[in-house]
Amino acid sequence: CVFLLQVFLVLLTLYKSGEAPGIRQAMTDVTTKLGEAAQMTCQIVGRPLPDIKWYRFGKELVQSRKYRMSSDGRTHTLTVITEEQEDEGVYTCMATNDVGEIETSGKLLLQAPPQFHPGFPLKEKYYAGVGGTLRLHIVYIGRPVPAITWFHDKKPLRDSENVTIENTEHYTHLVIKNVQHKTHAGKYKVQLSNILGTVDTVLNVEIQGIKSISNNSVE
């Protein structure tokens, strides 16, 4: 009887002490198309059952039309209704109980055909002064990151002494130094292309007869 009582007391102690949250299945990176629902999932156990919270950029997410949380006690799921490229990023699931806490994170990647960002509308015409610098800045959306090609009067542009092209996952920036009327005026086309599609647009450039026009130069 004494032995059984000791076993009972040990089991009772273990039960009261509980079990810190542990990860059975960590979150993994998820790729989905922009505009579709994405599910971030992990498996976490613990005793007592951990309290589950979801975070993005250190900010706790709450149940809403955009974010939906569900759990069966072990498998925890965050559903993200994707609406913009900025929904990409790292999402974190944090589990906490009286014994401890643990977290696991995964990255949401969104695929989308390239398009020119509607928040940065293009102008009807761009200007630069003779001998000055022409700057054309295009902000875009698109994943995978598209191949970007610039053209001037149908001829591809490449980096050179006076031409610099800077491409990032959010914008493309064309800089031409010491511009001249005959050489640099006219139509510039930028083309964006990835596995989901291709888009292009034409920019009209006028070179004016003074060195610089600060109010109209494209920064």
Rank of each mutant, 00 (worst) to 15 (best):
D29K: 02
S70H: 01
W150L: 10
H173E: 04
G89K: 09
E19K: 15
T149S: 12
T172F: 02
W54I: 04
K66V: 12
T183F: 03
T96I: 15
K187M: 10
P50M: 01
G22C: 03
E161N: 08
K187L: 13
Q63S: 11
G73S: 08
T183W: 02
K33H: 13
D153F: 01
M27D: 01
R68D: 02
Y171I: 00
I44Y: 08
E206Y: 07
H181Y: 11
E60W: 03
I165K: 10
E103Y: 13
G197I: 06
V10F: 03
G142H: 11
S160T: 11
T172A: 11
S71H: 01
Y55W: 07
S105N: 05
Y55G: 08
F8T: 00
D87H: 12
I138N: 08
K59M: 07
G209K: 09
M27H: 01
V205D: 11
Y15L: 11
T31R: 13
V218G: 15
T31E: 15
N167M: 04
Y67C: 01
L78M: 02
L192S: 06
N215F: 13
T13F: 10
A185C: 03
Q180D: 14
G197E: 08
F3R: 00
H173K: 13
V30C: 02
E84T: 14
E86S: 15
G209P: 02
A20N: 05
D153T: 07
P156G: 03
Y127G: 01
Y91Q: 05
C93A: 14
K211F: 10
F8L: 04
I141A: 05
